[in-house]
Each structure stands twice: as structure tokens, then as C-alpha cells.
Design a binder for these strands. Structure first.
Lengths: 209, 209
DNA sequence: ATAGCCATGTAATAACCGCTACACTTTCTG
DNA sequence: CAGAAAGTGTAGCGGTTATTACATGGCTAT
């Protein structure tokens, strides 16, 4: 055996490092999302995650690097939660209803609300890599809704209508939920709100009343 | 002169104290709005305002008290900026246009955007006195728009239509402006956006396209 | 003028912060 | 099994923080 298999070498240390990294990220996510960037303590993260402070600094460089990693991961989760594929075979109203409910549920999920709070307050110190793809999830969803409207030939300007749908779905609850942790919306309320917005956008305010 | 005039005694010290308080509040507003609560330093506030650290603590108790005072004042300013009286004699479209532009200009003003950023991130540590009246400005404006629509008998459900107008006016720009300091909207864009939303809500998506 | 009051300026306290250094143990590799 | 590499624990450094204490100055009223 003069030649070892080139690719499959050093499996364990990578796993070990990845496990440490994941533990750090999980603890850091808790701390950052519930305390904010400035109030969060790196020592507190290590205290919760176990392991050593030195290892954390070896992996993320400094506090800001850890914060960036947490926010990038959290943003990716949110985008993935938004990405929904089904609903193509549904009718116009049923499809929009499914899209809208899924969208609003994601927006109002506790973890994502905490993420948005930090995001709004600390956006100025996030790296461009996160900021540049900032609106990709949103525009992606808007594209899905636009395409759905276009396929059903429901409105003359699908792009504008999709924008109105998303803004109205979000408008009523998102800001209030961000600024008030006790603000709760039941599934029924979400469902009815989504349905009403659909009627208003598709058929005008006279039908929605 | 055995009896001095009871009310008008000690005029100067009150003025002096009020002037000190105002100087502290102005400096604190700058510091808090541009640095956030945690990153802000009380000594920095005193350095900018002049005066003494001891007097600041005598007036506001501690850092949180100073923060509460700043946020309450700033919120009052925002509410007052929203409160617009005129536009009663205007036509339906012209009146809504004036209301919408005024509303969006206030929402997107630099100082108010900074206020919202702190408000979203730090709402959990604001006193109830501020939080309870949190939505009063918004609901007040919604009431004005509702009344305006009702007087013109423009729609069957003025309350719902007013809600849609406000959500759509705000939706497109507010969140983006909060998370991106470089996000700029020209007066023309605001005017056109407001007008388009009015057409959509009043006459449906078919006309707005 | 004298006594009292309040603002001032400055210094000190005590705690916590991010971060680094270092000696030690564990784990993997050749 | 020897040695390299990586993880661990702790202790400490330099700095900043909110907050308090205190000695000093200017003002008002008697």
C-alpha cells in the first residue's frame, strides 16, 4: 500500500470540528436572538455550549464572526422555510390561500420574529454577503406568486398583484408582532386574513366588505 | 411684607433644571438613535451635552430612565408628525394623495427610521406607558382616513379600505428602509406609489395596471 | 454678607467585556 | 507507538461600563 486513497482521508477530525461548530452555533443563536448583539456575551455562549473559549475563537475569529455565522444560518433557514413548491395543481383561490398561509406562518414564527428584531436593529453591521442576498427570499416568493397568477390568467398585471398580496398579507401583523412579543395570532385569524386579502386584490374592495 | 406671593417663587432654578434636562435629552437622543441602547455610553451623553454626570443621574435615575425619556419624547414627535388636520376640503383622490404622501414622508424620515430601528430591537425593555400608547398614532391616522372615505362615500367598508391603504402605502418601502440606511426614495417615487395604491384600492387591480 | 441649595467637575469603585496566552489532555495519523 | 494536531480549562490583560462619592463653585433668599 504505497498509495492511500486520496479523497477519503481524515474523517474524524472534521466530524469533531463540525460537531463543535454546530454546538457553538446553536448556543450562540439562543444568546444572540434573545439578548441582541451587544448585550450577548461570548463567555455565556461557551458556558451554554460547553467546550472552550479558545476553540470558539479558533473557529469564528471574534464575536462579530460568530454573529455573522449565526445570522447567515438563520437567514438561510428563513429563506428555506419560505420556499414552497407544491400548490401548482390547486385552483386559483386555493393555491393563493396555501401560499399566503405558509408565508404568514413563517413570518410570525417565534424564532423568525426574534431574527427579524436583531436584523432590523443590527443590519448595519452585517457583512455584504448576507445583505446582498437579503431580499432574495422575498423576491423569490414574489416570483412564485407572480407565476401562479400568470398561469391562471387571473389579473392583467401579475407582478403588481403579487406585490399587493404580499404587502397586505404581511402588513397587518408583522410589525406588531416584531415590536410586541406577546402579540399572538391564531391559525383561524391567519386563514381568514389571507382569504380576505385574496378577495380584495382579485375582486376589489367592494367584494371584500 | 410678611407674606410672599405663594405661586411665583423660585422661578430660575426650575428654568435652569428644565434647560439642563432638555440638553441631556437632545444629546441622549443623538447617542441612542445612532448607537443603540447597549452601545450607547452615559458618559458620552454628558460629554456632548455638557453639564455633570451627577445631575443627569439626579434627573433620570439611571441609563434606562434616560432611555425611556428619550423614546417617549421621540414617539410623541412621530405621532405629532402623523397628525395632519387639513385636506378636508379636497376631493377624494386629492385628499387621499395628501394623506398618503404625508404619512409616507413621516415614515421614511431619517430620524424616525432610526427611532423605529431602536424601537423594534429594544421594545422589550420599554415601559408600559410607552407601549400601551404604541399604536395610538397609527390608529389615529387610520381613523382619519376612515372618516375621510366615509364622508366621500367612496367604498362600502371605509374602515377596511383605510387599513388596506395604509398597509400598501407602507409595505413597499418601510421595512427596506429600516434595514438599509442607504435605501432612498425620491419624492416622485413616493407620490407615484401613493397614487397607484389609491387607484388599486378604490377601483381594483384592473385599473391600477 | 451668610447660610443653604443645587449644579458641577472629577475621581474612584466594582463589575464585566472581548480577547489572548499557556499549560494540559485528548484524539487522530503515519 | 511516537508525534502532530486539535480541544480544553483557566488565568489574566487592557479596556470600558454604569454608578456613586465628594469636594468645589455659583446662585438665591434672608
Amino acid at each position: 500500500m504505497v498509495v492511500d486513497p486520496p479523497p477519503p482521508k481524515a474523517a474524524h477530525p472534521q466530524d469533531r470540528g463540525a460537531a463543535r461548530r454546530e454546538a457553538f452555533l446553536n448556543a450562540a443563536r439562543e444568546v444572540f436572538l434573545e439578548q441582541g448583539y451587544e448585550a450577548a456575551s461570548v463567555n455565556d455562549v461557551v458556558r451554554r455550549a460547553g467546550g472552550s473559549l479558545a476553540t470558539l475563537y479558533a473557529q469564528f475569529g471574534n464575536k462579530e464572526g460568530l454573529f455573522h455565522a449565526v445570522m447567515a444560518e438563520q437567514y438561510a433557514r428563513f429563506v428555506q422555510a419560505l420556499a414552497v413548491k407544491g400548490a401548482d395543481h390547486l385552483s386559483l383561490e386555493e393555491g393563493l390561500q396555501a401560499l399566503g398561509e405558509h408565508f404568514l406562518q413563517a413570518l410570525l414564527a417565534r424564532e423568525n420574529l426574534a431574527f427579524f428584531r436583531i436584523f432590523v436593529g443590527e443590519a448595519h453591521k452585517l457583512p455584504k454577503a448576507v445583505l446582498d442576498t437579503r431580499s432574495s427570499g422575498w423576491e423569490n416568493l414574489q416570483g412564485v406568486v407572480t407565476e401562479f397568477l400568470r398561469r391562471h390568467q387571473a389579473v392583467p398585471d401579475p407582478q403588481a398583484a403579487a406585490s399587493y398580496l404580499l404587502d397586505l398579507w404581511r402588513g397587518r401583523h408583522h410589525f406588531r408582532a416584531m415590536t410586541n412579543e406577546a402579540y399572538a395570532v391564531s391559525d383561524e385569524e391567519i386563514s381568514q386574513h389571507v382569504a380576505k386579502v385574496i378577495r380584495v386584490v382579485l375582486y376589489g374592495v367592494t367584494t371584500g366588505a
